[in-house]
Simulated scan of single mutants.
Amino acid sequence: MARTATKIAPAAEVVTDADLPGLPAATVAANQLAVMHSKQEAAAQAIATEIGYEGSLTIGALEDEIRFYQRRTVESLLELGKRLLVLRELTPHGEFEKRVEFLGFSYRSAARFMQAAAKTAKSANLALLSTQVKSASAFLELVTHDDDVLENLKDIDDIDRMSAGELRNAIRSLQGDLEAKDAVLDKTQKKLTNLQVQLKKKVVADTDWPDALEPVSDQVAAAGRKIAQAISELETCRITLFEVAQDIPEEQRPKYEAALAHIAEVYEQALSRAEAGLTKERTTFDKSLGAYAPEAA
């Protein structure tokens, strides 16, 4: 009778870290990459929530939708800007500008679209105007202005038919009116001084206080416009600096970036002074006049 051959299973080969010296480092790198991706996705989700974007959060889908919205209507301009903002958060550092160029437009244009989307998400006036203005270039003109100007523009009947140039002229006219009003308000300072004297003398005559205090209310509103205008000017300076950087030859970039260090220092000082002043005024307001604010009631 023939004997059945005995099959012997091969011994299992055990692989240790010593056999693959690069394995621990590769594991650490993979973990670090996973953490980085997680942070990018969280940042992208945060900016998507802030600007009201509800679409896909993958790079491929975002690029496809960006191409779709490149028709340049105001609505598509804003949708394009939203997707660029999210794409920027998902893109590894240093690669966003290349992706923008690959999509077929300049970084300067991308920056304007992103600014428009971010500002429209925060401004009710700009959001309303986005439904009225038909020209993309005209709407981009609006984005650079503060809410005081936008508040007056939304009541113009033919704004939907205005070109960027016509809208620019209308804005200049409105700004001139606001400046003239502020000049008149400055002249009310003497009236305010007289009112202060009356208050200190405890004038208790039957006074129509809403009308008597109207100069104070107007002066406060004018001060608020000046603060908003100053912030808008700072923002414009910052955006302009980086727009200019896109056209600078590589050999000039080191000198330009060195100059930016000085401007950044001046910018930081301006912000610090403004923050300190506003913090002090906010604290004083909360402890005094803030008690009469509607929220407190």
Score class of each variant (00 low, 15 high):
R3D: 00
T4K: 09
T6R: 14
K7I: 15
T16P: 05
D17I: 13
A18S: 11
G22D: 13
L23C: 10
M36V: 14
H37G: 09
S38Q: 00
S38V: 05
E41S: 00
A42R: 10
A46F: 12
A46Q: 10
I47T: 06
A48C: 03
T49F: 01
I51A: 05
G52Y: 04
T58Q: 03
G60W: 06
G60Y: 09
D64Q: 07
F68A: 15
Y69D: 12
R71S: 06
V74G: 03
V74A: 05
E75K: 12
E75W: 06
L78M: 01
E79A: 08
R83G: 11
R83W: 11
L84F: 09
L87E: 02
L90G: 05
L90K: 07
P92M: 13
F96H: 08
R99F: 07
F105K: 07
S106I: 08
Y107V: 00
F113P: 11
A118K: 09
K119V: 08
K122N: 12
K122M: 12
L129H: 09
S137H: 10
A138P: 01
F139G: 07
L142K: 05
L142I: 01
H145A: 00
L150N: 01
D155T: 11
I159A: 05
I159N: 02
I159P: 02
R161M: 09
S163E: 12
A164W: 12
A164F: 09
A164Y: 05
G165L: 14
G165W: 08
I171S: 06
S173Y: 00
K181H: 11
D182P: 07
V184P: 11
L185C: 12
D186R: 02
K187M: 11
T188M: 14
K191D: 15
K191H: 15
T193E: 14
Q196M: 13
K200Y: 10
V203R: 01
V203T: 04
V204T: 15
A205N: 14
D206E: 14
W209D: 06
E214V: 15
P215N: 10
P215A: 05
V216C: 13
V216I: 05
A221E: 07
A222E: 00
A223Y: 03
A223T: 08
A230I: 02
T236H: 10
T240N: 13
L241V: 06
F242K: 02
A245M: 08
A245W: 09
Q246C: 12
D247C: 08
D247P: 10
I248C: 08
E251I: 14
R253D: 15
K255S: 09
E257L: 15
L271A: 13
A276S: 15
G277P: 04
L278G: 04
T279N: 14
E281C: 10
T284Y: 13
F285L: 12
K287W: 10
S288H: 02
A291T: 05
Y292G: 04
A293V: 04
P294N: 08
P294Y: 03
